[in-house]
């Protein structure tokens, strides 16, 4: 499967995503923010980092970059797009995902392991995740508190668009397990079409036993499985 990992001027988890995908036996290449998606792209990763320094709002400038126009077309045609951390922020700013990520409730940056409960299994991002298995994956963000108005939240719930919620090691969604104050402990969501997803935690940092957890690979394995079932969807 061919992954295109976007590279904004200050992306800093781009290499980590490439590393994780290649280690899991698939192809990944970096795509510069001034370029278009290459032909043959099966899925796009919008990686973590600080895109353009995030001086306005996280991800607010990145959405105007040339590559994002091409990602939008790709997504419109049903192509799979996964935004991680800053990439999730970019996708909400670009309007590809609803809601917004605001500052953590204690106003501090949090780098720590969290547990994630997978709330919907019927997406290309979650289909391989073992049922009832809380995923142990690290977070590293200062603005990861998911926020949306009531109507949007209701819609997310009604459509099963909430993919991951912060939980404890037993899988209970508690306030104590919520590192940033996200509404409903939301750690990740998808769009209505279920082909675009974003999450604050970093699955690419949890794909090797050496690094303490392999739980992140279930998210990539889900995409690989989905990829085996259908040819590239939305290559422009």
């Amino acid at each position: 499967m061919n992954f295109s990992v976007l590279q904004f001027p200050a992306s800093n988890c781009d290499q980590d995503a490439v590393h994780a995908i290649r280690r899991l036996g698939h192809h990944a290449r970096l795509v510069w923010h001034k370029d278009n998606l290459p032909a043959g792209t099966d899925a796009v990763i919008v990686p973590g980092g600080f895109s353009y320094g995030d001086y306005l709002r996280c991800g607010a400038i990145a959405r105007f970059s040339p590559v994002m126009q091409s990602v939008r077309q790709f997504a419109d045609k049903g192509g799979w797009v996964l935004g991680i951390c800053n990439g999730f922020q970019v996708l909400t700013e670009a309007g590809l995902l609803p809601g917004a990520l605001v500052r953590n409730r204690d106003l501090q940056f949090h780098c720590e392991q969290v547990y994630l409960k997978t709330a919907a299994a019927d997406t290309p991002f979650t289909r391989r995740i073992p049922a009832d298995k809380p995923l142990r994956i690290p977070i590293a963000h200062g603005e990861g508190c998911y926020y949306a108005d009531e109507a949007t939240l209701a819609e997310l719930r009604a459509n099963g668009q909430v993919l991951w919620q912060y939980c404890d090691s037993e899988g209970n969604v508690t306030d104590q397990a919520n590192p940033n104050g996200a509404l409903h402990n939301i750690a990740g969501i998808c769009n209505k079409g279920r082909n675009v997803a974003g999450l604050m935690p970093h699955p690419e940092r949890a794909c090797e036993a050496l690094l303490g957890s392999e739980d992140g690979k279930w998210i990539f394995e889900s995409l690989f499985e989905a990829g085996r079932e259908r040819p590239a969807a939305g290559t422009p």
Binding site: Q15, Q108, H110, C111, E112, H202, R205, E208, L210, L211
Partner: peptide, 29 residues
Amino acid sequence: VYRQYDHQVRAGTVVLPGSDAAVIRIKED
């Protein structure tokens, strides 16, 4: 203190802050 530092970016931190010494893995990238 260290919770405020991203100590895992670059996917190479094998022993995180909180033990006697940090251990990092040097890989090709």
